[in-house]
Design a protein around this nucleic acid. Structure first.
Lengths: 311, 311
DNA sequence: GACTCAAAATAAGCTCAACTAATTATGGCA
DNA sequence: TGCCATAATTAGTTGAGCTTATTTTGAGTC
């Protein structure tokens, strides 16, 4: 029917370096900057991508103008796979650099934070350490802290405001990501004559909500929950639909959201952090924490792929 | 706590070629033979593995004697990750060589065949073709054929005896794998004075079972089901425990199983096949069939990774 | 032991894929 | 029109990884 055995299964000409160049470029870096990340010249990156496109026999980048204007359809299709391969490679290699993790660990993760690939990272960690048994509990960030004692969690990941101080000083805390929190609205939304601010916001207990309410309070503004949901998707959709003003971290903004600031009369919001807390002092807890902090899910971009130590 | 940002995230010195050499060697090929597969000299393979071990800073192969004697603990740990990376790479590349698959397909898979990574292959196919919606139905091979009409399956994968002829000649059939079926017992099992053969066997409807009973019948032997289960694990354990004579394909044998043949008075058994049937004539069905037939799950080894077309 | 055989490691030199540096092309902008 | 930023092209260089040839290793055999 179709040839199976003598298949071109895996075109051996493609290298991981090709993929690195592509991913960096796909994330909006120019050829020059990508070259910097990879410790290569701009020309090397150009040629590398050209070669990759040759091998795949399709264009990956749309470069109408003097510089890249996004991905082609093929590029869009190839990007997730390329990233996945690079992530798996880098995780596999760094996993080999520390002793195998073993034991049973309870991990708490937020069910409301748009964490790029936290679940992926956890499952890859389990794949790479077969003697490790991971049990994951998902809950609202605000509840995870209480669960440490109740459920005996070893490691939790939660979102919080910057300068968050853990209630137990035996816990080791580590910030994975830090980003600004914004007031956002749909582009077409009119907010001139507002007496009360209609908020599109997470339920009680959410730290974004607290930060927003506190800030509005200080600024002497009134607000009400025009739309409340624990789901990021719902919140973003509600903001896009113009149901009110949202409070979202930079990574969760939708295309059509615009940021409201001083000019519109909105007070500044604090930075938010995704932090990891080691609640127990098992060696495995520490190892898992190291794996996750090295893992790509903490990064917004793959910029770090170029920082490999070179002989 | 531990450095995150300037991490050696992904040691860029490791190449896919290193991984190919390792995987081939790990699967029992010698350096010479692996070189043949990779179109390289024996020396190149030796150096390639040495380099990989240098980079990972650990030994991967146990080579006490003149030749390799299996994997080290580190090698055992690294192998699945290396395979996964190569499989994903090869699948991603070949996916890019055909148009994106789109639509909705119903796939039937056997729930009783030890198919190395069928589910993995299906999920990777869905990852690589986001416009494709796959719905998988798992059932006994014997029931899948009936479900084609009832459930409107587009593609099914099932185990059957060799020379199986589909009941509907509009179906396109394609053999994915072919292997011998054996009578097996635990090493310590005594089968001298048997009047009736105690069988450890799959439930009614299973083609292994039919093949076994037919063969015994022809040979004029009586048999009874000493242990019946639809689960491979149970069957293997029951055989290992000495509960009776099993009927298993080559790929499902356990370490402590021995094969019974002529000398012990057992008739020959037919070959078994894993076949894929395209029940509908959608373009997407054909594309999915091609993806799966190219996919590594059909292979017992990764021997084919060396067969890439070279410029 | 000494011979043989098979397989892996090592040595030494070569080659070309991929790099750098320099130059040219392109398009947006004042 | 000139300027600037960015990407493509060209041409020349280099070293990682190859090949071939040789040595080492260990198992089997008499």
């Amino acid at each position: 029917m179709f040839d199976t055995q003598p298949s071109p299964l895996g075109d051996r000409r493609v290298t991981l370096e090709h993929l690195r160049a592509f991913v960096l470029l796909a994330e909006g870096m120019g050829f020059q900057q990508a070259g910097l990340q990879l410790y290569r010249s701009q020309s090397a990156v150009t040629q590398s991508l050209k070669r990759l496109e040759e091998i795949l026999d399709c264009k990956l980048l749309e470069r109408r103008q003097g510089h890249i204007m996004g991905l082609t359809e093929d590029g869009e299709r190839f990007l997730p796979a390329a990233k996945e391969i690079l992530i798996r490679t880098s995780e596999a290699l760094s996993a080999m650099k520390q002793p195998e993790i073993s034991g049973r660990l309870l991990v708490g993760v937020p069910d409301d934070f748009k964490v790029a690939d936290l679940h992926g990272a956890i499952s890859r960690c389990a794949e790479l350490n077969r003697k490790l048994r991971l049990e994951v509990i998902s809950a609202l960030s605000s509840q995870l802290l209480y669960q440490i004692e109740n459920s005996g969690l070893d490691l939790i990941i939660l979102k919080c405001l910057e300068n968050f101080v853990p209630s137990d000083n035996r816990w080791k805390m580590h910030s994975l990501r830090r980003e600004p929190l914004y007031w956002v609205a749909a582009q077409q939304y009119g907010f001139d004559s507002m007496t009360e601010v209609p908020l599109v916001i997470f339920p009680d207990g959410c730290c974004y909500r607290n930060a927003a309410l506190t800030a509005l309070d200080k600024a002497g503004k009134n607000a009400y929950g025009a739309y409340v949901s624990a789901s990021y998707e719902n919140i973003r959709a509600a903001v896009s639909a113009g149901l009110g003003i949202g409070v979202l971290p930079a990574s969760a903004l939708a295309e059509d959201h615009i940021i409201l600031g001083d000019e519109e009369g909105f007070p500044e919001l604090p930075m938010v952090e995704l932090v990891m807390i080691q609640a127990t002092h098992k060696y495995a807890t520490k190892q898992l924490a190291e794996f996750l902090s090295r893992s790509a899910f903490t990064r917004h971009t793959m910029a770090s792929i170029g920082r490999g130590e070179i002989a």
